[in-house]
Nucleic acid binder design. Structure first.
Lengths: 258, 258
DNA sequence: GACCTTTATGTGGTCGGACCATAAGGTGGC
DNA sequence: GCCACCTTATGGTCCGACCACATAAAGGTC
């Protein structure tokens, strides 16, 4: 710390920001974002062709492509070949997949202690359950019941169980009606898909009773949602999530994080 | 709807997946993510040079660059020129800025109804306040008090107020200690920075009393945190956020969403 | 020998060009 | 009228070249 000024820096004392050299592709991104936030570009609108935009902005086509790639990876743009009305580069709106990828990678990078992830998940799913108890439609509840039934299938192995479990929680989140909360819930649950499956596999013979416990939790949650009992739904969700991390998780996550 | 099978489609009845042509840069991304999630690449590790990796994977340098760009834009990679230990392309860990950009754009694209964003913000900041009330350090509280004092400065215009307000909420989130929740809080608050500033500006003469109200809210929150009163802190935070959207927001967000 | 200057090397940053694959629309022959 | 073919416009990919930058190594100066 503070070692920056220890040598004979002619700028000693004046802490100048390193100016952050702007790469051209970032400038291109700025122009595109500018058009979007000012409303000149709306969802579905088409951008100029790469070659044309490159000439318009006075940069190379490669710079435009890199900018487009970055925005496409964030779900802002959608690129397609051809000459039809759906071809070319258009403004898309798929935040879910982008959020998903983003959170999944960062959780994988172990930037977040597992306890923080669990706390965040509890927070999100409590909120979803609260809303779901108030506004879940019969169709939502029916979907949940089908997922529960599928989990009861004797042919349901651990991998399939993991998928169905994820789907069940996603169904609750989507029944809650808040798109943003649901997306965050999905992203976090998806980010734990692989670690959870590993944990399931390592349980060995202890799997059967654990699975029964999880399914009972699910039934309790489902019943609370059907009854519109928001408080009970929230409590069951929290106990469900925390319970597994306490009982079944064991040392599967031996990361020494807090 | 259902008109897909109305014409004489030879594949009628067989719903084939559209195959989803994989772009080369996506394959490169997969390889990189693979290395990350399997732990072969950790934060700070260095990737091969673009030219080398291109040859290793049998693709062009451009494809590698596009993949790197996408990952850089998501905060997964960090690219720097030179030959030193900090140069080259390394695995970074800056989810905040990436989440930030992502949510800001998508809120701008109006993909999320404003009510959903507010609900999500309330949820996140209640959680942060709950933890902050329990574990905020004297340094955390001191920082908040300084921000409050800066907001009381008569020279503090609306833009500066907006910044300080954002910083105050970020300070609470970080005092809560949950990195993931804090990052999501920051991202959402930042995503509303510009719209909020617009709202402030459009208030006209009504600004002064509104600002006073907001500052009173802040003081109440701060006092609850100092007292370690988690329940009160949560309530004040929720009233603070919802209050402004109800009273001060007015028709600034005339999007007809919900 | 210690210190500064110069050069070499390796990195990402940028550019231009070329060609391919795809998907529509137009054109002609039958 | 209908089908095959060509034209056109787009993104997808690759190659090669050069630039800007930052460190590391070599050399020269005192």
């Amino acid at each position: 710390m503070a070692g920056i000024e220890s040598d004979d820096d002619p700028n000693a004392g004046g802490s100048w920001r390193p100016v952050a050299r702007a790469r051209t592709y970032e400038l291109v991104i700025e122009r595109v974002e500018e058009q979007i936030v000012t409303g000149q570009l709306k969802v579905g609108d088409r951008l100029p062709a790469e070659r044309d935009l490159a000439q318009m902005l006075g940069v190379s086509r490669g710079a435009v492509r890199e900018a487009f790639r970055a925005l496409e990876a964030q779900g802002v743009l959608r690129m397609a070949v051809g000459t039809g009305p759906d071809a070319g580069t258009t403004v898309a709106a798929t935040p879910s997949s982008a959020l998903n990828r983003l959170l999944r990678l960062h959780v994988a990078l172990a930037n977040f202690p597992i306890q923080h992830v669990v706390d965040a998940r509890v927070m999100l799913e409590r909120e979803s359950a609260r809303h779901a108890a108030e506004k879940a439609t019969p169709a939502d509840l029916e979907e949940m019941r089908e997922l529960l039934a599928a989990m009861d299938d004797p042919d349901c192995d651990r991998e399939r169980f993991n998928e169905l479990d994820a789907d069940f929680h996603v169904a609750i989140a989507e029944a809650g009606g808040n798109r943003l909360v649901a997306d965050m819930t999905i992203a976090i649950r998806e980010s734990m898909r692989r670690p959870l499956l590993n944990a399931f596999q390592e349980l060995g013979d202890a799997w059967a009773p654990i699975a029964e416990g999880l399914k009972n939790d699910h039934r309790s949650i489902c019943e609370a949602l059907e009854a519109g009992d928001s408080a009970a739904a929230q409590e069951h969700v929290e106990r469900h999530i925390r319970g597994f991390y306490r009982d079944g998780w064991g040392g599967c996550f031996s990361t020494d994080q807090s």
